[in-house]
Amino acid sequence: MVRTPLTPEERERGERLGRLLREARGGRSMAEIAADAGISAETLRKIETGRAPTPAFFTVAALAGALGLSMDDLVGRCAEAAPTERAAA
């Protein structure tokens, strides 16, 4: 099965999600958050760096829970960043 290439907007959204998760992690280690979320530290690293721009919903939900974020808050923060980033481009 051939995967359709991601659009620039999808890549941008993945990078934005990664930044938000990294900021929410603060001083806690990747290994700690990944373990709390039930994923590997490598998966978290890929999400935070934008190399995995379309993580599964349940992965994002698990990370939000481990970081103490509500899904509504996470979606809202991603949406708030979008117009600013487009204006800067």
Rank of each mutant, 00 (worst) to 15 (best):
R28N: 05
G76W: 07
A52L: 10
G38Y: 05
A89D: 14
A41D: 12
G68P: 03
K46Y: 02
A31F: 04
G26P: 00
R28T: 09
L44D: 04
L74Q: 00
R3S: 10
A31P: 03
V60T: 10
R51G: 04
E80L: 14
R28W: 09
L63D: 02
I39L: 01
E12P: 15
P8K: 04
E23N: 08
G18L: 05
M30G: 15
L6K: 10
R77W: 05
A41L: 01
E10I: 07
G27H: 14
L74V: 06
V2G: 07
D36H: 15
E12K: 15
D72W: 15
M1V: 12
A82M: 11
D73H: 07
T49A: 13
L6A: 09
C78H: 04
A24D: 02
G50R: 06
M1W: 04
E10N: 07
D36Q: 08
V60R: 02
R86T: 11
T59Y: 00
E48F: 03
A24E: 04
R13E: 13
V75G: 01
E23G: 05
F58Q: 11
A34W: 03
G14H: 07
L74I: 03
G18V: 04
R13D: 13
R86C: 11
F58N: 11
A79C: 01
I47C: 02
L17G: 01
T84E: 13
A81N: 00
T59M: 02
G76L: 06
P83T: 07
E15M: 05
E9T: 10
A64R: 00
L17S: 09
R11K: 13
E48A: 02
S40P: 05
L21S: 11
E32Y: 09
E32I: 14
A24C: 05
A62G: 04
M30T: 09
G27W: 10
E9D: 11
S40L: 12
G26A: 08
G26K: 01
G65V: 04
A79S: 06
A66W: 04
R25W: 00
P5S: 06
R45A: 10
M71I: 15
A81H: 03
A52M: 09
A34Y: 10
S29R: 01
A88E: 14
E42L: 15
A56W: 11
R51K: 14
G65M: 02
R28G: 03
A64M: 08
L20K: 08
D72P: 03
L63E: 00
G76T: 02
T84S: 09
T84L: 14
R86K: 05
R77I: 07
M1G: 12
D72C: 06
E80R: 11
T7K: 03
V75H: 08
F57A: 09
A52E: 12
K46P: 00
A52W: 14
P83H: 06
L44G: 05
R16A: 12
V75L: 10
A89H: 07
E15P: 02
G26C: 01
A56I: 01
L17P: 03
R13Q: 10
A34R: 10
R22W: 10
A89L: 08
R19W: 05
A82Y: 10
G38W: 13
G27N: 09
E10W: 11
G65S: 08
A87K: 11
G50K: 08
I33D: 00
L44Y: 05
I39K: 03
E23F: 03
L20R: 07
M71V: 14
E48L: 04
A82V: 13
R19E: 07
L69G: 06
R3M: 07
A82T: 09
A87S: 14
